[in-house]
Amino acid sequence: MISRQEVEHVARLTRLRFDEDELCRLQAELGRIIDWVEQLAGLDLSGLEPTSHAASLKNVLRADEPVAGLSQEEAVANGPDVEQGQFVVPRIG
């Protein structure tokens, strides 16, 4: 089960918006999926370390040496709104 409030909270967090119909459907779908993954809650997994990294690697680092990047023109080439070599975003407040 997932509440309407939770669905709305998560939608805000992820910057998504749904109309009323979509919200209802989504609440039901997410509820079903969450119920389904609840099967994990039944497993006794105490004593197991969570696997957060797929490979057992460590300390893979890079030397502090410069690598050529993009020109300003290349950097903003895909920008939907660009001014003076910078990305424009609408009013923040």
Binding site: V67, L70, Q72, A75, V76, Q86
Partner: peptide, 23 residues
């Protein structure tokens, strides 16, 4: 450092915008 935390772009201050960037 000479370069950024996770890429090889140079660390600078006061240069024209978006000239020390990479993908």
């Amino acid at each position: 450092t000479q370069t950024k935390m996770f890429c090889g772009c140079t660390v600078t201050f006061g240069d024209p915008p978006n000239t020390h960037v990479c993908p």
